[in-house]
Structures are given as structure tokens and as C-alpha cells.
Amino acid sequence: MKIGFIGAGSMGSLLVGAFVRAGVMQPDDIVISSRTSSKLTTLADQYPGLQIARSNRDAANGAEYLFLCVKPMDFRCVLDEISSVLTPNQIVISITSPVKISSLEELLPCKIVKIIPSVVNAVGSGASLFMWGSRLTEEDQTTLWNLFSAISQPITILEDEVRVASDLSSCGPAFLACLLEQFIDAAVMSTGMERETATSLACEMMLGTARLMLEEPCSPSELQAKVSVPGGITAAALDVLRKSTRGAFLQVLYTTHQKFADDLDRVDSSLSPRERT
């Protein structure tokens, strides 16, 4: 089997490593291309047997599965380069949310699926967001689902939901890390606690909180009620926290959605049929 990757940036490299460590891909099956040769060399050193393609066409040619791990505005160039070597039986996996499935199906002859990973997939955790193209068979869908199940919890969403779903699943780790960093900073500044100790405590808390909410299960409001009692320390602190952060995430989502809308317009224009060469 040949599995192609175009793009060896943060997410392309993350997926290669996660799939290999999970045992669902062998380095000998992987062929990868990138504009940055140093990233390819690093991956080849980490995973002996992994093959470096001379071009994007070489990575795409004959690949049973082809992962497109490139920036939205790079798609036009990449698609123009690889479209002539793709066949109807191949499956192209796009991990780039502003690139529409309909655009890819119009420009490429093969089967298309959009799957948005998360940085936490690197440790076999978190979700992966699935949006199916029209040409995939039920067998194709099952195979892809099982592949990503080895590194994540696959969840099917509507393509119209990709922005808010990505906010929760893919951007969410950065948002929570930002809040956690402020929590750790406050502990260090207010008490003199060693940063390493505060960080360990905060990370264990975060991991345990997620497990409790998923495994018990327990909703966010139920968890707050479990920890706090009326008139207690936690209740008083939660009141301060709610007042300080009220509306913050609405502003966060407004920002991400506006940026996504801008990106969508730019990508649609770049992939417009009138620009075909």
C-alpha cells in the first residue's frame, strides 16, 4: 500500500507520527512531499523506511490514500500539479477546513473526504471531524473511520458546522491552554509556588476533569456543583471568574468565524473554474 502525504508542517508531521505510533501505518508505506526539505529529513530520520517524494506528483501518483496537509491558499497550485495523475479509485483526504468538498470534487477525479484533526490526536486523544464526499463507498467510510479511531474519536459533522466544531475540537486546546497558563501564572505570582509544581498540578487537574466529564458522565454545570457549595471558597471564586469572562468566548467565536468567512471567500476565488490553467 502507498499512502501519500503532501505537506510536512505541524499537522502533516503530527498525523504521520500518530498513525505510525498507533501501528495503523508502516513507514515503508508512507511517501511524503514538502517544500521544506529539512522537515522531510527530520521525518525520515524519525521513521526509518519513510520515503521522500521528489515532487507532489510523485507523492500523489498511485497513492491509495492521499493526505493534503497544506495551507488553504496553496491548494490551487497543488491541485494543478497532481490532478492529472489522480484516478477515480484514489481517496484524497483534505485536513483544511476552508476548502470545500464540492470544490475538490469539481477539480479532482477521485474520492474526497474532509477530516479535521486536532493537536491532541498526537497522544491518541481528542476528536477528528469527518465530512464525507459524495463518491465514497460505505467500505471507504468504514476504513477511514477505523484508521482515525486509532488516534482519535471520529465524529461526523455537517460541512456547514466545520468552523464551530473546529473551534471546540482543534482550536480549543489552545484556548484552554491560554486560560491554564493564566491560572498557573496567578498561582506562581500570588504564592511563590514553583512553576513546575503548579504546571503539574494544573495539567493533572485538566486531564482528570475531562475524564470525569466523559466517563461518569458529568456536564460542566454538574461538575461545578460537585466542587462548590453555597457560600464556600469555590463558589465565591466561580462568581468572580464568571463575571470576568462573561461574553469572552462569544467574542472568540465571532473572531474565528469572521476570519473563516474571509478565508472561505479567498479560497473559493482561488479555486474558481475561471482560474483554471
Rank of each mutant, 00 (worst) to 15 (best):
S200H: 07
Q182A: 15
C203P: 00
S190R: 01
R211F: 09
M189V: 07
E196G: 08
E196I: 13
A210F: 01
M189D: 15
E181M: 00
M189L: 12
E216L: 10
T209C: 15
M206V: 11
P217F: 10
M213E: 05
V188W: 00
R195I: 05
E215M: 07
L212Q: 09
T209Q: 05
E215K: 06
T209E: 00
L212P: 04
M205T: 15
M193Y: 05
R211K: 14
A202G: 01
T197I: 13
Q182W: 09
L179I: 11
S190A: 11
D185G: 00
L214Q: 15
M193L: 15
A202P: 00
A187R: 06
M205Y: 05
E194H: 09
T191S: 08
E196A: 14
M206H: 10
G192Q: 04
D185E: 15
G192R: 06
G208C: 02
M206Y: 14
L179H: 06
R195V: 05
I184Q: 04
S200Y: 08
E215Y: 08
F183V: 10
G208T: 06
T197W: 04
E216S: 14
L201F: 12
E215Q: 15
S200L: 09
M213K: 07
A210D: 07
E216Q: 13
F183T: 15
F183A: 15
A186C: 13
A187M: 02
L201S: 01
G192M: 09
L214V: 09
L212A: 13
E204I: 06
M213N: 09
E215P: 06
T197A: 11
E194G: 04
T199W: 00
R195M: 07
E216C: 10
D185V: 01
M189F: 02
M205P: 03
M193I: 15
M189G: 03
D185P: 06
T199M: 07
A198H: 10
F183C: 13
L207T: 11
G208P: 05
M205N: 09
L207E: 13
E194R: 14
A202E: 03
L180K: 03
M206K: 05
L207M: 09
I184A: 08
M189H: 14
M193P: 04
